[in-house]
């Protein structure tokens, strides 16, 4: 009973994403709330999920993109209320749970084989 209450409270504070599951190998578009001073805006970060750390409320996922020939990675908390929207663009065929080898690949070598494509629709 006691554990139930604790679990419920934890779950209630976690943001409910409108996607069923974030998976490694997905191309996602993260709409993230950013506060600069007292201004708020939404930044869209699109890239491949290369790692996921499952740790209850502290679960995170790591998104990698190549921007102006420079690799950029960002770690997002999975349950943060700051994620306004999460779109899944595509799911790629992958054979491991951490795609860190993508860091050594650029250009054509950095392609992944698409398993499913969702055409920018949030699923």
């Amino acid at each position: 009973m006691k554990q139930d209450i604790l679990q419920k409270i934890t779950e209630e504070s976690a943001a409910k994403l409108d996607v069923p599951e974030v998976k490694v190998g997905q191309t996602v578009r993260v709409h993230y709330n950013i506060t600069e001073g007292d201004k708020k805006r939404i930044q869209v970060f699109e890239g491949v999920v290369i790692a996921k750390n499952n740790n209850g409320l502290n679960s995170t996922f790591r998104v990698r993109k190549v921007s102006f020939n420079i690799g950029v990675e960002r770690v997002f908390p999975l349950h943060t209320p700051l994620i306004e929207k999460l779109e899944i663009v595509a799911l790629h065929k992958t054979r491991r749970s951490k795609l860190y080898y993508m860091r050594e690949r650029f250009g054509k070598a950095a392609r992944l084989k698409i398993k499913e494509r969702y055409f920018n629709k949030s699923k």
């Binding site: 409270i9 976690a14 409320l57 908390p77 700051l82």
Partner: peptide
């Protein structure tokens, strides 16, 4: 009852 953590609206994780 016990301790856990929650998210605040501005995205901070707080032990409670």
């Amino acid at each position: 009852i016990g301790m856990t953590q929650i998210f605040t609206e501005d995205g901070q994780r707080v032990p409670v």
